[in-house]
Design a protein around this nucleic acid. Structure first.
Lengths: 194, 194
DNA sequence: CCTCTTTCCTAGGGTCTCTAGGTAAGAAGC
DNA sequence: GCTTCTTACCTAGAGACCCTAGGAAAGAGG
């Protein structure tokens, strides 16, 4: 009988599409096999197991996402870079919710070992923060604040956690204003006056 | 044969304990039945289906969490209230990761209709923000920023997303300093100077 | 003591993950 | 053009899980 000619990369790409359309939890081996016109057992020659499949979606997503962010921040600094970074981050997550969800899995060290996406993500964040002239440990704290806020905002937005009384994009813009301001005036230790 | 004497509340409580120990995704009808010493089909008289079970864990979590936050912010205002709110939020999530995860599900309107937890959560947030003297739509934007940052931080912390080079509690304290500062000097529209 | 409610049961169908072992398609070497 | 080797794909089947239908018995209320 005619072969489909699948490879691990093709399988992952189709799975990523399914994740974006139906949600990451709807990406199952059997549903994927159904879409590919193949028996589910056949996929186990391309992918170790279900977790492996989802991890691959996450690694793919992290690489695509850092590509987009890298292109957006190129040649920018300060607030320009912050906004470019944040908008690229958010637009990728909204364009590819399933892939984005997969990037937020709890990865084992060996799973991310060979991947460039996550390493680049750290580099890009620190590069963007360079203009704000922070030293450690403030740099780490500021990076954690940014990651938390970006991820939390997108997670709530994708999860329908915001009501519709206020434009979500407007709120996002004001959030970035706020983050920029706090990065410029980072509160040093014992500065926390009431 | 002797009955276990289960009720929907008891079943939910045990399921919540399982969620905290093993993760929300490990809460299954059959695993729960196993722990309760009962056949899985028996649980369907107490709970509609698996989703219903997890929703109940989420509603329980949101009530417990708002109780804790409410007690923490009572009689406080300004930065005191912000820190009390945030610390109560974080401590609950770290103490009960499974219940917390369940509060972050995508709920249908009818699922949260009869619950007090989520309504109280909104009230508590706006009450805490009162001292910062913001008007709409800044109030909504600030509320979204706080929820995003709190949730994002806890999500990353629980997911092991922070490396161990810097104390997580210290970073959290600085994050709260930063949020307090930005709430006190909320950037009004067209204030976003570079 | 009888009746009604409700907790729990058995039986069974359907979906899904994953393994073991086999077949054939297509590429590589002669 | 034939053999050989790799590998994409298969069938068969075990085990876990979700959920429904219908029945039995425990315990509460009359």
């Amino acid at each position: 009988m005619a072969r489909a000619g699948l490879t691990t990369a093709k399988v992952t790409a189709v799975a990523a599409g399914m994740a974006d359309e139906a949600g990451l939890d709807k990406v199952t081996v059997s549903a994927l096999a159904r879409r590919l016109g193949v028996k589910d057992a056949s996929l186990y020659s391309h992918v170790k197991n279900l977790r492996d499949l989802r991890v691959r979606i996450g690694l793919l997503g992290s690489e695509e996402m850092t590509d987009r962010i890298g292109a957006a921040v190129a040649g920018r600094a300060g607030k320009d870079a912050l906004v470019a970074f944040a908008d690229a981050y958010r637009s990728y997550a909204l364009d590819h919710p399933g892939r984005y969800a997969a990037t937020q899995m709890r990865f084992e060290p060996e799973e991310v070992a060979g991947s460039v996406g996550f390493r680049r993500s750290v580099e890009l964040t620190y590069g963007m923060l360079r203009a704000y002239d922070l030293a450690e440990p403030d740099l780490t704290d500021a990076g954690r604040l940014l990651r938390s806020t970006f991820h939390g905002y997108i997670h709530l937005e994708l999860g329908g956690g915001f009501n519709h009384s206020r434009d979500v994009g407007e709120s996002w813009a004001r959030t970035l204003d706020a983050l920029h301001q706090v990065l410029e005036n980072w509160p040093s230790r014992h500065d926390g006056s009431k």
